[in-house]
Computed example of a mutant assay.
Amino acid sequence: MSDRESEFRTFAAARMESLRGLAYLTCGDWQTAEDAVMSALSKLYVRWSRVENPEAYARTAVVRAAIDETRRPWWRRERAHGHALPDRVVPDGAPVVDERLRMRAALGRLPAKQRAVIVLRFLEGLSVQQTASTLKFPEGTVKVYTARGLETLRQILGTELEACHEAAV
């Protein structure tokens, strides 16, 4: 195995889960997220020796691939719908899971580009400039998508809370 290949494998192994999580939050489907990550990593591998910042390149490629998947699902002929059982018993994380599901459902109601901006800004912790660079948007567009996305999330989550309170009364 060459040094180049070894470096790439080390990078891919270290970043796989975070890239997969980023893709999932962007597109909302684990299988599509895996496809987006594999596509991004295969593009990165071909360009590995020429890429100055592999982290930024991978993040950009994953988000773009995930957005493309949500735009063009019609070209995919097969989708896996099976759910694998866990290998080991894990503690009940119901309270955390409920909040994650609620947030995931709210994120899923945002348009793909707004969702990508929100995920990159607040879950990946990127600045406006880094997000703009990643998505190849002007910084002003990132700011507008951030504001609109957050406002939509507030409305969605606020409506859910009101409905829960009314149901409880």
Score class of each variant (00 low, 15 high):
135 L>G: 02
96 V>Q: 15
154 R>N: 05
155 Q>W: 03
164 C>Y: 13
47 R>M: 08
94 A>G: 10
131 T>M: 06
130 Q>L: 10
21 G>P: 04
37 V>T: 04
34 E>N: 03
146 T>R: 10
159 T>Y: 10
61 A>R: 08
32 T>V: 09
115 R>S: 00
22 L>A: 14
119 V>W: 00
50 R>F: 03
2 S>N: 15
140 G>A: 05
91 P>E: 13
147 A>H: 11
117 V>I: 10
78 E>K: 05
133 S>A: 13
148 R>Y: 02
33 A>H: 03
160 E>Q: 15
53 N>K: 13
72 R>Q: 12
115 R>N: 02
24 Y>C: 03
146 T>S: 09
71 R>A: 07
50 R>Q: 10
15 R>M: 15
28 G>I: 02
113 K>V: 13
92 D>V: 08
118 I>D: 01
78 E>Y: 12
30 W>F: 05
81 H>E: 13
144 V>H: 04
136 K>T: 13
155 Q>Y: 04
98 D>P: 00
86 P>K: 08
165 H>G: 00
38 M>P: 00
37 V>K: 04
132 A>S: 11
106 A>I: 07
121 R>W: 02
86 P>A: 12
34 E>T: 05
127 S>P: 09
26 T>Q: 08
78 E>Q: 05
78 E>G: 04
73 P>F: 06
83 H>W: 03
45 Y>S: 05
32 T>P: 01
135 L>W: 03
72 R>A: 12
32 T>Y: 02
150 L>M: 13
104 R>S: 12
59 R>Q: 14
127 S>C: 08
54 P>V: 01
59 R>S: 14
115 R>A: 00
146 T>L: 02
82 G>E: 13
116 A>L: 05
11 F>I: 07
4 R>S: 12
109 R>L: 13
50 R>A: 10
125 G>Y: 05
7 E>W: 06
41 L>V: 01
136 K>M: 12
83 H>E: 12
94 A>R: 13
116 A>F: 07
138 P>D: 15
115 R>D: 00
90 V>T: 14
127 S>M: 11
131 T>L: 07
40 A>R: 08
7 E>F: 06
127 S>F: 06
112 A>P: 15
63 V>Q: 00
96 V>Y: 12
10 T>S: 15
60 T>C: 12
91 P>C: 05
53 N>I: 04
103 M>H: 04
26 T>V: 13
6 S>W: 08
131 T>P: 08
155 Q>F: 01
115 R>V: 00
52 E>I: 03
134 T>Y: 03
162 E>F: 08
166 E>M: 11
105 A>S: 14
15 R>N: 14
131 T>K: 03
46 V>P: 00
64 R>K: 14
168 A>G: 13
36 A>Y: 08
48 W>K: 02
18 S>L: 10
16 M>P: 02
51 V>W: 03
78 E>R: 11
38 M>F: 05
105 A>T: 14
3 D>K: 15
41 L>H: 02
38 M>D: 12
119 V>S: 06
110 L>K: 03
